[in-house]
């Protein structure tokens, strides 16, 4: 099967670099699946897991915020933060989740609520992704 090169880069360094058969993830506008030869495209990403299928095996990466850039031979994901499923610290993600939930209960202020919701979604995303180790 034809493969496409995928690289996931964050400000703190590259996270993933490999050839895969299919990239699927959730963009702001909905689910996306990309295979080799896709038309060039740019889409902002939601807080979600990126699934990378190659040789009958799937890698999971938790991504929060950022973009997906597609060219015929290469897919680049520019994320503010990204963690591979195997390197996610489940304990830390769970404390982050508990902290965000507590914030949500305490705060009524609108900006803080928004931040807490985002933090909560990121934490949940990391926990869900970590299950695919």
């Amino acid at each position: 099967m034809k493969t496409i090169k995928v690289s996931v880069v964050t400000p703190d360094g590259p996270v993933y670099d490999a050839d895969v058969e299919m990239v699927s993830t959730k963009a702001k506008s909905g689910e996306l699946g990309i295979m080799a030869g896709h038309v060039p495209m740019v889409a902002p990403l939601d807080i979600a897991a990126v699934r990378l299928k190659h040789s009958g095996h799937t890698d999971y990466i938790a991504v929060s915020g950022g973009f997906l850039e597609v060219r015929p031979d290469v897919v680049t994901i520019l994320a503010l933060s990204a963690e591979k499923a195997e390197s996610i610290d489940l304990g830390r993600a769970q404390t982050a989740k508990a902290r965000a939930e507590k914030w949500l209960e305490d705060q009524q202020n609108s900006t803080d609520t928004k931040r807490a919701q985002l933090a909560l979604r990121r934490a949940i995303n990391r926990i869900n992704t970590a299950e695919h180790k």
Binding site: P11, P40, A43, R71, L80
Partner: peptide, 27 residues
């Protein structure tokens, strides 16, 4: 230059991309 398809549209992407770009310049 590569001409891209934008999902959903160019304005909305620039809305997210440009602040992120400016922030990365500072970082």
């Amino acid at each position: 230059l590569t001409s891209y398809e934008f999902e959903p549209n160019a304005e909305e992407i620039l809305e997210v991309l440009l602040p992120q770009y400016a922030e990365s310049l500072i970082f």
